[in-house]
């Protein structure tokens, strides 16, 4: 019974974590799909959003979930500006190889991390919200339950927002002309141009959206995570693994990939040890490249 309880509790934590990972992965996947580059500044963008949420909380007492109203538009604008002023000019030069275009995003990430260290120091920050340790217990709702499970309040609320954001993105991509134009741009740029789609504008909007998504993830993570300037790298790697796992550019794949990674990390932490999550991440990454080179999306297509 205890074993089942531990397993289920680990599974729940994994799914909650995976929902947030999915939002991060979706952002990178969108950018990958349209621009065909891996945005290696992705985690750093999330770090920027977390500082925004942190300062809003510390200075103005704004709840991290309310800060979504700021981080999402702010990161959208930051993404558009980065794409317009830094990435787009480099993408236009044919003689710069795609590998080197990716290096540009590494540079952007480093600059953001260093700016954060300069302005905010490398101290660990957090937003001690009143509900940080609150949880819902199964036994409160079902007195005679044979096992006890709990749902952390901040994790669950963050997960709920992640679901809502994912659903909103889905609706946007499926049902609006702009969403369809973005998907068309990802599938065939020249054909998109012939249909009258302003491909350059769509590319900008996509980078903005990708940044806004990972920005939202920043607001959703800050109630549970410590913040420091170098935290970006870890989340860039997470987004990268999800993008590969999902099958480069597939949104459905990214959602499933995020959940798989969340569960896998949670299981690794419970059954192997807290410190092993990064190793697990790396294992899943390599395994995916070897056994599933086209990711979850490839699997779905095959069936």
């Amino acid at each position: 019974m205890v074993q089942l309880e531990v397993f289920l509790q680990t599974l729940i934590s994994g799914i909650l974590l995976g929902g947030l990972y999915a939002v991060i992965g979706l952002g990178m996947t969108l950018i990958m799909g349209v621009m065909k580059i891996i945005n290696l500044a992705h985690g750093e963008l999330m770090m920027v959003a977390m500082y925004i949420a942190f300062w809003l909380f510390s200075l103005l007492g704004v709840d991290p979930y309310v800060s979504l109203l700021v981080t999402i538009p702010a990161l959208f604008v930051l993404g558009v500006v980065i794409q317009r002023t830094l990435i787009s000019p480099v993408l236009k030069v044919d003689s710069i190889l795609p590998e080197n275009q990716v290096i540009l995003t590494v540079g952007i990430g480093m600059i953001l991390a260093n700016l954060a260290t300069m302005f905010f120091s490398s101290d660990y920050r957090s937003t001690p919200v009143s509900y940080a340790a609150d949880a819902w217990y199964l036994s409160d709702y079902w007195r005679s339950s044979p096992i006890e499970l709990s749902l952390s309040v901040p994790w669950t609320v963050s997960f709920g927002f992640a679901l809502a954001i994912t659903a909103a993105l889905w609706g946007f991509l499926q049902h609006t002309d702009t969403g369809k134009a973005i998907r068309a741009t990802a599938q065939d740029k020249d054909a998109a141009l012939m249909m009258g789609i302003n491909v350059e504008r769509m590319t900008m909007v996509t980078f903005g959206l990708g940044a806004a998504l990972v920005g939202a993830a920043g607001s959703l993570f800050i109630p549970m995570y410590y913040l420091y300037p170098a935290l970006g790298g870890k989340f860039t790697l997470i987004a990268f693994v999800i993008t590969i796992l999902g099958g480069l550019g597939s949104t459905q794949g990214a959602i499933i990939g995020g959940i798989i990674l969340g569960i896998f990390e949670s299981m690794t932490a419970t059954y192997i040890g807290m410190g092993w999550a990064p190793v697990g991440r790396f294992v899943i990454f390599v395994a995916c490249l070897v056994f599933l080179p086209r990711g979850v999306a490839g699997l779905m297509k095959r069936s």
């Binding site: 002309d177 369809k180 998907r183 599938q187 020249d190 012939m194 249909m195 009258g196 789609i197």
Partner: peptide, 30 residues
């Protein structure tokens, strides 16, 4: 280039160049 179609010129390109992962209806909408 994205304004050409507004001028009244449509192009049915070589090799069709459909949007393969979109439905028939979505391709027409585009």
């Amino acid at each position: 280039p994205y304004r050409i179609i507004e001028k009244g010129i449509a192009h049915v390109p070589e090799a069709r160049r459909l949007f393969p992962d979109m439905s028939v209806e979505e391709n027409l909408e585009l």
